[in-house]
Design a binder for these strands. Sequence first.
RNA 1: CGAGGUGUAGCGCAGUUUGGUAGCGCGUUUGGUUCGGGACCAAAAGGUCGCAGGUUCAAAUCCUGUCACCUCGACCA
Length: 480
Amino acid sequence: MAKKDEQNFVMHIAKREDDFPQWYTDVILKTDMVDYSDVKGCMVIKPYGYGVWELIQSEMDKRFKETGHVNAYFPLFIPESLLMKEAEHVEGFAPEVAWVTHGGSEKLTERLAIRPTSETIIGSMYSKWIQSYRDLPVLMNQWCNVVRWEKSTRPFLRTSEFLWQEGHTAHETFDEAQEETMRMLGVYREFAENVLAIPVITGRKSEKEKFAGAQETYTMEAMMQDGKALQMGTSHNMGTNFAKSYDIQYLSKEGKLEYCFTTSWGTSTRMIGGLIMVHGDDRGLVLPPRVAPIQVAILPIAQHKPGVLEKADELLQTLKAAGVRAKVDSSDQTAGWKFNQWEMKGVPIRIEVGPKDIEKNQVVAVRRDDLEKQFIPMEEVSARIPAMLDEVHDGLFNKALKLREEKTTDATTFEQLCDGVQHGFVRAMWCGETGCELAIKEKSGGATTRCAPFEQKELSDVCVHCGKPAKTMTYFAKAY
RNA sequence: CGAGGUGUAGCGCAGUUUGGUAGCGCGUUUGGUUCGGGACCAAAAGGUCGCAGGUUCAAAUCCUGUCACCUCGACCA
């Protein structure tokens, strides 16, 4: 098969090592996940990309329900006066809020913010709904879109408008709120690892990096193939900050009026960007099987020959019955073209059926992660393929874990830190002072604190930068 | 907002230095041969060269202005 001049080939994508940002945009555009829209910073999520989001939603929703949460929907618009009630929150979000100033041709007496997050409007509703300790806890989640007017954007990772879920809960005590905060961070972690096949570091955010208005912010951070970190989800304990601003009070068993303790937690379409950057390779996307809209692509070989298409369809029914999301590609293309096409789209398993296979009563299955051919007897397909999907998942997770470990170093000197953050996570001791954090960012070329992990390790007893007594071992990295 | 870059066919680009008939590859359409790793042959369709002015016998090319997009900064709880 004659190899075309690669640079002229329309499906060519940039090599990751050469230009990671270019590779990333190539992949998501050429695999039909997204398209750029006419609105700057907003992307169109096409069916193939949205299919991934739908699977993320359903897997996550299942976990929310299991932990006692219910879904609701709150308005897109937030009156200015309502948004302004929590001082720190306003200060944090003000620069990136989009405003509605007119209704039709009439100027509004009060501007409406398009939600950058819903703490305020949900807080104001909770204030009405919660009267007694009998009303607690309130455990709600909403799936919606939010808008943040960012100066620079990148598909999935940072867009002006994005889809997410935000959970908001209210509790009687700090401890209950803290327990909820940690529970949901745990759900996120389990989801990232078992569904997205992405290993994550969980821990607490620094004072500077925490959510505007939160008492404590916890995060999960993943490592991308180019050595930059990505925040994949956050969980906040608000203490009574929002309850005090939005007047969320209840009458306790003892008959005393008390403020609620609230939490919020969220994950977004950014996770899709994350999984692309963690798993993708030079051939294109690699989708973890549990969120792949198409898990198996069935490719009929020499499909004009009698019986081939029928066999492919039979295989499709077998796989569907086994709970596998499969598709037959009977398009009028050569086999080689289809192989490359479906590899680029990241489908976890490709199955080939041709005249030779039909003769031998078998199929050829190829895993996307290792590209090795396996011959499977027809009668074993319904058992073997689901198992193979799990193997792909494990393969991806282990590969990502190995990558992260290779890109993680420990630093006891500032030089080591500056060197390490150029290509990954650096664990180092830190005094906890914001001034020191800013200085590190400045001097290291943009590295920020990612989190103080729950699994602490004492590398030394002084801060890697200022030499004062250290408080925590902290992860540093450049981040998306 | 700062620095750099790019606008030419659906997509990717050459042509601009040195002004002279609008080009290439991929894709698309039609017919045929193929079909187990990006096929081949033949024919065809498709462009106000980002926009507006200027110089010239003549502008994709030179000059002035302008718009859009991209990359890197800055910014982004």
